[in-house]
Design a protein around this nucleic acid. Structure first.
Lengths: 334, 334
DNA sequence: CTGAAAGCGCTTACAG
DNA sequence: CTGAAAGCGCTTACAG
């Protein structure tokens, strides 16, 4: 293993001079020695020891990505998480930082994982609303939450306008003559995100004198997609359209309904949510609420690194826009 | 920040004693002092500094997961990679190790990333066949490749029986009376995996006096799914069945064909590949070659950690079995 | 522009 | 069972 010291000896200078060159703190080193040291380092195959740097400089260049793990599917089986992680990894690497991922079940783990490696910042993917305050109290590095609806005052958060997503879906259904509608989503596990989408949807319906009946609010934590379609098939007054919290689940429902011989969208219309780039080949017929996940990832990293550069920067809660993408899963009713 | 030294002072012992307790090197410490130190550490909120441990002990407890990045979609937009990464992350964490992920474009990056953090082992996801030897020469830690067909002799690799997958698909088509068949896959980028599946498929057809025509071997690097369906629709002697390298692409093709009004499987049959757990809700009608990705992930980690524990353990190349899962995307021809 | 000293928080290797 | 010393590879903070 080649160290600074080895290079220093060969170059006949002190370790400090080599260190300066390696960290591009030049202008403090004559260009002549600098270039000699660079070529020597290159020739000897020098690779800086990040642990040593981290220990001495108290800067690890590690960004921790914390993902909520559950007992069933792991967090990366959700294409939304996988897609987001991919984009932020690219962004983080682009800045010369490293990505450590952590699947966590409970709060206590987080502080340990963050501090043990002296992470310089963290991005939280999944629902941590209950723990945000505790996490912040214990970790004084920039913490960026994604899609959090925690009401902690000083919160760095990047989210989207979930409420508006619900509104857009409702308006679109109404515009197409639908009067009996349903909502599908997992309510508790997904924190505020789902309830905002639900609220935007139901508020808008209500404003048009349309009630979203309780029996048409399908909670994926109580029933699975098959149950939902069954329930609808036995419903005396079934919904003509469903607003589904994710494209993935929407496609699943469409699949089940189609297998039952239902004509989609004429028997049952659908609006999904997300419109992930890697998913579009399956959802090319699905009308959906689009969110720009690349932009969300990019923004998250920009904000994170701004806060790393300027620790006393005030926290900011950014809400990105959403829009409805019209395709062919909503039937026009006369 | 609480250090070993702080605890040592409060406990009135030396740092070494605290260090021993923290590393559970007991039996070398009286149980009385040990328990006192443990509760003190707990009370003071001690979190060991991994960088310092890594530097002093030359053991980082970091496993690097190297994913091949390209210029288009990032590696985690592929559900196979995402799924695999999720499983190995759980396994690695279970053993008290940390996961650092690295998206790499070219070889030179790899050594830097591995050595800079003193990774104790690495798992390679994606095609690195060309570089395996160079990577191994430069990095003397256990390196586990996934699905590699590199012919380097000493290779730790976990793969599946891709050739058999192709055979099973061919046999199943033949059993159902198909005589004109096609193969779909990206040929160059995916290394040996795809060509083995192709070979198993075409060899088996040939053994039954059936030729796989060149024009029915669709290379996804030359044409996209839409082109393939177009090509088939203009084909004077079109295939009645396609063996597709992944479920994802198979579903895409089915989607396009269905939109064209084709009846699936009667007009065109499909066999896919992978059968990922998180994907099954879309592929519930797709006959496919199943691989056990959880088992693959688990095996990879077992092998990796065995090699970390026993550095001179001989390399092993493990091939997991595959099986055909019969569903409803292959039509029975008379 | 360059360097000698001290220290980051831990472990190894030895001595008792 | 316990501890004092040296060192891992780097940077900070100072001095020149």
């Amino acid at each position: 293993m080649v160290t600074l010291k080895d290079i220093a000896e060969r170059a006949g200078v002190s370790m400090m001079t080599v260190s300066r060159v390696m960290n591009s703190k030049e202008g403090k080193v004559s260009e002549k020695t600098a270039s000699r040291i660079r070529s020597l380092a290159d020739e000897m195959g020098y690779i800086p020891n990040s642990s040593a740097r981290s220990l001495a400089a108290k800067s690890s260049q590690i960004i921790a990505v914390i993902l909520r793990d559950s007992n069933t599917f792991h967090p990366l089986s959700d294409p939304y998480n996988a897609s987001f992680l991919g984009f932020i990894t690219r962004e983080i690497q682009k800045r010369g930082f490293y990505v450590m991922i952590h699947f966590v079940q409970d709060f206590s783990d987080i502080t340990f994982r963050l501090r043990s490696w002296n992470a310089e910042g963290a991005i939280f993917l999944g629902v941590f609303d209950e723990e945000v305050q505790k996490i912040q109290n214990r970790n004084k590095i920039p913490l960026v939450f994604i899609d959090s609806y925690s009401n902690v005052r000083q919160l760095i958060n990047i989210g989207i306008d979930d409420y508006k997503g619900g509104q857009l879906a409702a308006e679109y259904f109404l515009k197409n003559g639908h009067k009996t509608l349903g909502f599908v989503g997992p309510f508790t596990k997904t924190g505020g995100v789902i309830s905002k989408r639900y609220q935007g949807f139901s508020d808008t319906l209500l404003a048009h004198q349309i009630t979203l009946f309780d029996k048409h609010v399908y909670d994926l934590e109580q029933m699975d997609p098959q149950d939902i379609i069954d329930s609808i098939s036995h419903d005396s007054c079934p919904p003509t359209g469903l607003f589904v919290f994710s494209d993935e689940t929407a496609l699943q429902l469409i699949n089940i309904a189609s297998n039952k011989g239902w004509d989609i969208p004429s028997r049952l219309s659908f609006i999904g949510f997300d419109d992930l780039p890697s998913f579009c080949t399956f959802s090319d017929k699905l009308t959906t609420i689009h969110q720009d996940i690349f932009r969300k990832a990019e923004t998250s990293c920009n904000i994170l690194f701004e806060h790393i550069a300027t620790p006393d920067k005030p926290s900011e809660n950014i809400t990105l826009d959403v829009r409805l993408v019209e395709r062919n899963s909503v039937c026009r009713l006369s």
